[in-house]
Design a protein around this nucleic acid. Structure first.
Length: 101
DNA sequence: AGATTGACATGCA
DNA sequence: GTGCATGCCAATC
């Protein structure tokens, strides 16, 4: 049982309610890993396919999707977020909804 | 074992 | 607002 940073990260991300988004740093901070934003992103990249983690609710501190536009991933995440009620403003998400508690 | 990279963040110019 | 530099941690080469 690893029970480590990634475990907390998974838990935090899984706790993100629909219609809200969180930045890597935000998730990391909540997981108790303040400077480990990279850990979050690294995990998402190597995410188990059967992990019920809403990776699309995780974005960068700029309030934007971490993928370059034109990529399927970007459009997919964009679509998912919009479908959940997330408002994209000029390619950026309203960071006000960061607080979901 | 050492060096490099990565779905990042923050600070300063 | 943009661009460069530094930090942090684990996986990969």
């Amino acid at each position: 049982m690893q029970a480590s940073k990634e475990d907390k990260i998974y838990t935090v991300m899984a706790n993100i309610p629909p219609g809200k988004v969180a930045s890597y740093g935000q998730v990391a901070a909540m997981a108790g890993l303040l400077n480990n934003a990279r850990l979050v992103g690294r995990l998402l990249k190597l995410m188990p396919k059967d992990s019920s983690i809403p990776w699309h609710r995780v974005i960068n501190s700029q309030g934007k999707i971490s993928f370059p536009e034109g990529t399927a991933q970007y459009q997919k995440q964009y679509q998912l977020l919009q479908s959940e009620g997330v408002i994209f403003k000029n390619g950026r998400v309203n960071m006000r909804q960061f607080q979901w508690d």
